[in-house]
């Protein structure tokens, strides 16, 4: 059996006293790409935030095992250092730190080593080129005044720089134009190629998946995985919608 990178069992999650996830099971092996699809309000984003350790999502039952360690109820910064990454649906604006300094300090936090500015700048520039990002963004405050597309690209830039072993992409393609979707999916391919990490892609559109080899597709409805399938399930949902999975 391949190495399990993520094992979620019987996960129940409550937000403001309302249960959103009702016993969710999910297993990912190292290097695999899984897709979670589901209608609005099914709990897709809740799953992403809970895995990353958002304290507003309270785990009432179940377990999350990441890289062989129990991370249930662990804080986000510790989970991040263990190698998980969440690309946010709506990345927030943080005045007072530049994109470049932010990524460098995140890298230093993660590795515990000082990173030489020159080497870092070279890698950052190269990666920004792949993503078609104007290099001037590196010296602007984190996400402040970025367009929707640039914010998402900045998330992928962080993904490529931080090289996590598991990346969760929460609706990374929402609100992007055709060109931006292409750039972002090239960035994701680059991550698969150079880092070889596992991917958990949360989405309800399929454009971003076209260029990717998907190992498994899960359908999330009403806080539970109701169906598992392979890549062909994506096309089926594309054509017929979620109707057959709803009771």
């Amino acid at each position: 059996m391949a190495d399990q990178i993520l094992n979620v069992s019987g996960l129940k999650v409550t937000v403001e006293d309302k249960e959103i996830l009702h016993g969710l099971d999910l297993t990912l092996n190292a290097g695999e790409t899984h897709v979670i699809m589901g209608p609005n309000g099914a709990g897709k984003s809740t799953l992403g935030s809970t895995l990353m350790g958002d304290p507003r999502y309270v785990i009432t039952d179940g377990k999350i095992i990441f890289n062989g360690e129990d991370i249930t109820g662990e804080s986000a910064d510790k989970i991040s250092k263990k190698g998980m990454f969440l690309s946010f649906q709506n990345p927030v604006e943080v005045p007072g730190i530049t994109l470049s300094n932010f990524i460098r300090s995140a890298l230093e936090q993660k590795t515990g080593k000082h990173i030489r500015v020159w080497d870092f700048k070279k890698e950052l520039e190269k990666t920004m080129e792949i993503l078609n990002m104007d290099p001037s963004y590196a010296e602007r405050d984190l996400n402040v005044g970025f367009s929707g597309g640039e914010k998402k690209k900045a998330e992928i830039l962080q993904l490529l720089m931080l090289k996590p072993s598991l990346a969760i992409l929460d609706e990374t393609d929402s609100g992007l134009d055709v060109d931006a979707v292409r750039t972002v999916s090239e960035g994701i391919e680059q991550y698969k190629k150079t880092v070889g990490g596992a991917l958990l892609i949360i989405t309800h559109s399929t454009r971003i998946l076209e260029a990717l080899d998907v190992d498994a597709t899960h359908v999330l409805v009403d806080g539970k995985i109701v169906h598992n399938g392979d890549q062909s399930l994506i096309n089926e949902i594309n054509e017929n919608g979620f109707e057959r999975f709803l009771n």
């Binding site: 927030v92 943080v94 007072g96 962080q158």
Partner: peptide, 27 residues
């Protein structure tokens, strides 16, 4: 809370995240 969680998800401690937000506010 959104900003604190965002910064923490990139490996920053809660204390550092809050200090960064305050410095940014006075920026």
């Amino acid at each position: 809370d959104d900003v604190v969680f965002y910064l923490m998800s990139r490996g920053m401690s809660e204390e550092d995240a809050k200090a960064l937000i305050v410095s940014g506010f006075a920026d």
